[in-house]
Structure formats: structure tokens, C-alpha cells
Amino acid sequence: MTKEPFPASPLVRLEVLAGIVRDELLAAGLPLTHGGADAGAAVSVDRPDHRGVVVHWYQSSQFSDALMAARGDDPHHEGEEFAAFTKQADTVRKAMAEALHEILTAAGLAAERIDGAHVSDEILVTQRLTASPWQARRFSRDAARMDKMQAAWAAAGCGNPGSETHYPSTGEAQA
């Protein structure tokens, strides 16, 4: 029986998936954030349910602050400025949710939009279906490089190809 190198709890698996999601978004050129003042995609494990990895887009603090000020100046939400801010905020939120969904599914991830009363167009990523093209190429290149290195070590008679220093199989250290 093969023992896994670490406990494969749902939380550990989702943290690994969250790292893959972050890598894919960065590869697409999108900024990452933890929320707050920075604009970008926030990636987190769905807690406490562990359904998957949640991705949410945050607009800039400048835009959010201006929207809050417009809301404060128009408590009944009837003015033109408030309507314009709301329209722009909704358009950006929906467009970014669609873009995030498309990017993640193109990257080989099972992603679905979460549309609910208390959720604003977040994406739930549940699993990796396949490696994205850029990662598959990188993995293939790395595997080919390792094969070449192992062949070279074997041709040189290296007795321990996994070590940092490679000596002939006689075991003698060379000065």
C-alpha cells in the first residue's frame, strides 16, 4: 500500500487547488488581492463548507469609495449620479465574473458562477480537470530535461543521480 506524503484532507486539497487557481490568474495577467484597498481577484478556500475555491473580483478602493459617497449623498437612491455609479459597478462586476469564469475554464478547471441573493457573481472552482496548455508544456519540458540529465548521469557512471554532487560509480570524490 502506498502512503501519501501528507494527509490528503479536503482542506489540504483545496489549498493546493487555490494555488493552481492563483497561478492561472497570474498567468492570464490579472492582479491578485486579499480584498481591502487593492483591486484584483481574491482567491480563497470555501469555509466552512469546503465546496471548492471561491474567486471574487474587487474593484479599486477609489471606485468603491466614490460609490459609497454617492450612496451617502443620495439616501433614497433616486439620483442620476447614484444610478450611473450602480450601472458601472454592476457592469464591471458582471464582466469580471464572466472573464474569470472563462479564463479558469479555459485553463482546465471546473468552475461555475455562484449567483445568489447574498453573493455577487463569485466563481466556485471545484477541481482541476486537466493541466492548462502553458502548464502542460512546462511539465513536459521539465520531464524531458530530467530524462536527459538522468541519461547523462548514467552515461558518466554516476552512482547516485539524485545527489547534488555527481561522482563516478567508484565512489571516489574528485578534487
Rank of each mutant, 00 (worst) to 15 (best):
H77M: 08
Q62S: 14
P7H: 09
Y58F: 06
W134S: 15
V53E: 00
L124T: 03
D90Q: 06
V45K: 01
P5W: 04
R93T: 10
A111Y: 10
H166T: 08
E4A: 15
P10R: 02
A95Y: 00
P168T: 11
Q88Y: 12
A131F: 15
D74H: 11
C158F: 06
Q174I: 12
S64H: 07
P7L: 10
A143V: 07
V45T: 02
D115E: 14
A97C: 14
E122F: 02
Y58T: 05
E81W: 12
A144W: 09
D65Y: 13
S60Q: 05
T170H: 05
V12A: 08
A107K: 00
A41M: 08
W57D: 01
P10N: 03
P31Q: 05
A152H: 07
E24M: 02
A111I: 03
G79P: 05
A144M: 10
E172Q: 15
K94S: 00
T126H: 05
G72I: 03
A154I: 04
F63I: 02
L11Q: 04
L32D: 05
F82R: 06
A154Q: 10
V55E: 00
H166Y: 05
T165Q: 14
T170Q: 06
M149L: 14
A110P: 12
E172C: 13
T126V: 12
D38H: 09
H76G: 09
L17G: 00
M146S: 12
A42E: 08
T105G: 00
V21Y: 04
E102N: 10
S61I: 11
G29K: 03
T165Y: 14
P10C: 03
T170F: 03
V12K: 01
D38W: 07
L11M: 08
A66C: 08
W153C: 07
K3V: 13
E102K: 14
G35C: 06
A156V: 04
A143T: 11
V125R: 02
M96F: 02
V119Y: 14
W153V: 04
L109A: 00
D38I: 13
H50L: 13
E24P: 01
A156E: 11
G159I: 04
A84R: 15
E24L: 01
